[in-house]
């Protein structure tokens, strides 16, 4: 405690004049309750006293005590009624407070809803949906067009280029080797992934040692 910055997070609870008056009412109720309690305790004592007097055959005095007891009971009743009324008033006040609170919150809620609705009208939304639909259709077309352009064509043209390159780089096979050339060798010469090195190796194997 005593740390400056922590105070900023603490919200002070406001006590209005209304609150104070309400408290007064409640304190009043408490006093009544305490009063009732005192009277009840007295009552018990008087009952005891009355019994004792009857046992001692003091009839007159017992009667007096009983009269006092009756008066006490009446007072207790009165006090109870008063307290009951007070409790009713208090609970009415509470209910009213809740109702008011409720209405206020409802009002705020409705206002909030309205302001949200203002930012968007129905037309705007329909327009937005339309635009979105068009955009999606356009996108689909683009994909289609791109898709019809096959990469296989690129591959074939590359192959042609490679063959041209090969015939340009390496001299034609000497005539005397043509007989010894096996079909497999001729096939190998056309395999795409073969490098120039491997190619020349194959040839050297065939050369007479």
């Amino acid at each position: 405690m005593g740390c400056g910055f922590s105070r900023q997070h603490v919200v002070k609870t406001n006590v209005s004049s209304f609150d104070r008056e309400l408290l007064d009412l409640k304190i009043q109720r408490d006093s009544l309750q305490q009063y009732e309690q005192r009277l009840s305790d007295s009552l018990k004592n008087y009952i005891k006293l009355a019994r004792r007097l009857v046992a001692e055959n003091q009839r007159q005095q017992a009667l007096v005590v009983l009269q006092v007891k009756h008066a006490l009971q009446k007072s207790i009743e009165k006090a109870q009624n008063m307290r009951f009324n007070l409790e009713q008033v208090l609970s009415e006040i509470e209910l009213k407070q809740i109702e008011t609170d409720y209405v206020l919150k409802l009002r705020t809620g409705t206002k909030l809803l309205q302001s949200i609705q203002k930012t968007l009208s129905i037309e705007e939304i329909e327009h937005l949906l339309e635009e979105t639909k068009e955009a999606i259709e356009f996108q689909n077309k683009v994909t289609e067009v791109l898709g019809s352009f096959s990469l296989m064509e690129i591959d074939e043209s590359c192959e042609e280029e490679l063959e041209q390159l090969e015939t340009a780089m390496f001299p034609p096979v000497p005539k005397r080797l043509e007989k010894t050339m096996t079909p497999q060798v001729t096939e190998n010469m056309q395999v795409k992934s073969e490098t120039a090195k491997e190619y020349s190796k194959q040839e050297s194997i065939l050369l007479p040692s």
Partner: peptide
């Protein structure tokens, strides 16, 4: 802690 306020009646 800001959870309540103690006060007297009027």
């Amino acid at each position: 802690q800001g959870k309540c306020a103690v006060f007297e009646g009027k």
